[in-house]
Amino acid sequence: MAHGLVQDPWAGKRVRTLDSGTREGEWQAYEEAFTTKVAEVGGVNYPPPEQGQPLSGSVGVETVLNADGTVASVDIRRTSGHAALDQAALRIVRMAAPFQPFTAVMRSQTDLIRITRTFNFVRAGEPLRSQ
């Protein structure tokens, strides 16, 4: 039996990756709608101060969405260095779900969408920003 092998959970699926550089019509609009919704939810669910100090930092997050807009997975790709911020980023994405279902054109081209974003937590009380 082989040890240490990692199976691709999306094997056999068509996965389209979107990020802040996506510039193709409907794909760009989808990515922007995702980012806007996450920022709105993050703005009202900012993590509380830790030991009396407001938290700030950037968290790299990868979210995989199903065609119906539900979250298939959400993972940290680059930590902020603060466990509370990293967990808040994951929680905020889950709270913002479900996202828009894929359009018929999108469904004809992909089964899953992977969105990679960096979320910037500036200071407690300020809105979450992403890039």
Rank of each mutant, 00 (worst) to 15 (best):
D111G: 08
R107I: 01
V122M: 04
Q109L: 13
R117N: 11
N120P: 00
V105K: 14
L85C: 08
P101T: 04
A83V: 15
M95Y: 06
R114M: 08
D75W: 00
A88Y: 02
D111V: 03
E126Q: 15
R107D: 09
M95A: 15
T103P: 05
R77Q: 15
H82Y: 14
V74R: 07
R94P: 06
V93A: 09
R91S: 14
R123V: 09
Q109E: 15
A83K: 15
E126V: 08
T79N: 11
R91G: 11
N120L: 05
L90F: 07
G81H: 10
D111C: 05
I76T: 11
V74F: 01
V122G: 03
A88W: 07
R123Q: 13
D111T: 06
I113N: 02
L90D: 11
T79Y: 04
T110G: 04
S80W: 06
T116M: 04
G81R: 08
R123I: 08
G125F: 00
Q87G: 14
D75C: 02
R123A: 12
R123E: 13
L112Q: 09
N120E: 09
F119Q: 04
S73H: 03
R78M: 12
G125P: 12
V122W: 00
S80G: 08
F121D: 04
A83M: 11
T110K: 00
D75P: 01
P101S: 07
F99G: 07
F121E: 05
F119N: 04
V122F: 01
L85Y: 06
T110F: 00
I76S: 05
A104P: 09
R123T: 14
E126R: 14
F119M: 11
D111R: 05
R114K: 12
A83I: 12
R77S: 14
I92G: 05
M106V: 07
S80P: 08
Q109W: 01
P98C: 07
G81I: 09
R77Y: 03
F99T: 05
A96E: 06
V122S: 07
